[in-house]
Amino acid sequence: MFRILLITSVLTLSACTTVQPWEKDLLAKPSMALVADENEIFLDEHIYFSKEASTGGQGVGGGGCGCN
């Protein structure tokens, strides 16, 4: 499964085009941030961490919780 995901990722990346600095107006918008609302994602992660067996994926850090 990991191998399939990695190969797919490389193929996806091969499709990217060079974007010049002056072409980044859309990418510069706050709504285009990977995480536009940090607290929302933080609270979602906390909820699902305590209700599911899976965790992680988006980063390292944070802290532990006795809820799981």
């Binding site: 600095p21 990418l27 510069a28 941030a33 995480v35 906390h46 992680g56 980063g59």
Partner: peptide
């Protein structure tokens, strides 16, 4: 539990 942030990558010159 984990949390994180992810924002990035565009150039500032368009602002």
């Amino acid at each position: 539990m984990q949390l994180k942030n992810t924002q990035c990558l565009t150039d500032i010159s368009t602002q």
